[in-house]
Design a protein around this nucleic acid. Structure first.
Lengths: 191, 191
DNA sequence: ATATATTTAGAACGAATGTTCCAATTAGGT
DNA sequence: ACCTAATTGGAACATTCGTTCTAAATATAT
């Protein structure tokens, strides 16, 4: 039939994702993307569609990779509460290593008020994380590690929401001790 | 000497602020601002400087007005802990009335990674809020309303950070009950 | 009343925006 | 080896971007 692509679409998508992740949607130009991805303009539009679609795919890719890391951090841990702790630790570690704050949270503030399609995706992705924590909290309650009085899903929402606080503090102060202290407070308040 | 301005600079600044507040910095164009403020382009540059300076003044104006409202919500309240509760309540009420999420938090995610000047201002403004809560927490400890074990400033940082969680949830789900439940969790964890 | 400094309206600027198009290239199926 | 369909590089598109400029209008101080 015809030629094959010279580039690996998912590898290049990750480059786009990293740029959107760092600068957000509006501050990232197609020129920025072309330069960073090292892919021709035409090929970009052929492969990913327009900027908006590319952003959405970047977001999905981010969530997929991030949640996989979170789950991976918890596997093998028998104590559900410790599993939660491990995920939070991993999230913080990752965030400081990448020197970037969670793309879903950033996008929630930048895009949710302006773009309904993106907002729905962000809701769905956040729901997925809430479910992960909800399950763990339920199990922790069964294991009597935390009080069974509290509603598991509410606690999960609290945890996921609290992440935003961690990231804001990181974004402003970039002080890991401070962020870890906040995380400790959050985890303590679960019990 | 010469003519007077036909418009009230602070009144028009508030219009700019509302637009930046809603859409963020990058998604707001000068054309948007000219239309919304009903001020001539040239007059805008004469009065406020460029877009960047106008944004900074908008941010300062936002903080001034918001913090005044917060303090006002707490005045007359003898119990320091209840004062904290009142501020949180006011913050939530205001946020749902305006149908917009805190401009400082939004800007922290959009601008802090890209703009050091804005980041420093955001830090300073956040510090001011942390101090307000730090004072109240200190007083609440003296009044034995909350445990004196915890470091007051750390708890204040936790509160201020937790606001970001409230706003993310509002931005995504726009569910007031959910946000109020989260706020309750935050306040409970203070004790 | 006149001179003067400032504001006003809106045209105009070059640069950057997202997107499309086209000719040249290239690899796969027959 | 040759046709064919897709990819490639890069020019080109119309808009929009933030900003500046000019000329007319206007209010103040003398």
């Amino acid at each position: 039939m015809a030629r094959n692509k010279e580039f690996d679409p998912t590898e290049k998508l990750e480059k786009a994702r990293d740029l959107f992740w760092e600068k957000g949607y509006h501050a990232t130009s197609m020129q920025d993307l072309v330069s960073q991805m090292q892919v021709n303009r035409g090929s970009m539009y052929d492969t990913y569609g327009d900027k908006h679609q590319l952003f959405i795919e970047s977001l999905q890719n981010y969530a997929k990779e991030t949640y996989a890391e979170y789950k991976q951090a918890a596997t093998g841990e028998k104590s559900p509460f410790k599993a939660i702790e491990l995920i939070v630790k991993k999230a913080i570690q990752r965030s400081f290593e990448e020197e970037k704050v969670c793309m879903i949270v950033k996008s929630s503030f930048e895009m949710a008020p302006l773009d309904n399609d993106v907002k729905e995706i962000l809701k769905q992705l956040s729901n997925a994380l809430i479910s992960i924590f909800g399950d763990l909290i339920g199990k922790a309650q069964q294991a009597k590690e935390i009080s069974a009085e509290k509603n598991a899903r509410q606690s999960a929402q609290f945890i996921v929401g609290s992440f935003a606080g961690l990231w804001q503090m990181q974004a402003l102060y970039n002080d890991r001790t401070m962020v870890e202290q906040m995380a400790k407070n959050i985890l303590d308040s679960l019990k």
